[in-house]
């Protein structure tokens, strides 16, 4: 991640925005809707593979679809709202429903045939082995 500290220092609007933000927060004003990245992912890597995990509580295996094209992994899924009958109502609704789609750029070329994915207790885990052709090769240095 890039830190543009120099730019931030010279931007007079930044401080004003910050104050505005603070006022909004104190008075509970509606903040502009921010597009949240869903699902949140964590990415682990080493030289030979990558593991991507994502939190998908309430998603059934059959409602999550993964596909890969080149270096881009696409996750799609949907979570249905429970059916409501007459006289039933929500006291609280903090969880979200609906569809999502997220594309993740992989750090290297992966062997498409060897990808494994599992969904356990609402946590998706995708193991992506690096393609043999993409692995770094150690070059021996010879002395003359």
């Amino acid at each position: 991640m890039l830190y543009s500290t120099f730019l931030q220092k010279t931007d007079p609007m930044r401080e004003l925005n910050r104050i505005q933000h603070e006022i909004d927060r104190l008075f509970g004003a509606e903040r502009p809707v921010k597009r949240k990245l869903f699902p949140p992912v964590n990415v682990w890597t080493n030289q030979d593979a990558a593991i991507i995990s994502a939190e998908l509580p309430g998603f059934d295996m059959k409602d999550v679809h993964l596909s890969i094209v080149g270096n881009e992994l696409t996750m799609k899924g949907k979570r249905e709202m429970p059916e409501m009958k007459d006289g039933e109502f929500f006291h609280r609704r903090e969880r979200s429903y609906g569809e999502f789609e997220r594309i993740i750029q992989l750090p290297f070329v992966v062997d498409h045939a060897k990808i494994e994915a599992s969904l356990t207790d609402g946590v998706l885990k995708i193991a992506l082995p690096r393609a043999e052709s993409d692995k770094p090769i150690n070059i021996e240095i010879k002395s003359n």
Binding site: G58, E94, R95
Partner: peptide, 23 residues
């Protein structure tokens, strides 16, 4: 955990998102 709390005629139903929990 984020929750939904629903009330029906006879019950109160609570759903809480808690991924990866040890049952």
């Amino acid at each position: 955990p984020l929750v939904d709390i629903m009330e029906t005629e006879k019950e109160i139903i609570l759903f809480a998102d808690m991924p990866g929990v040890d049952k």
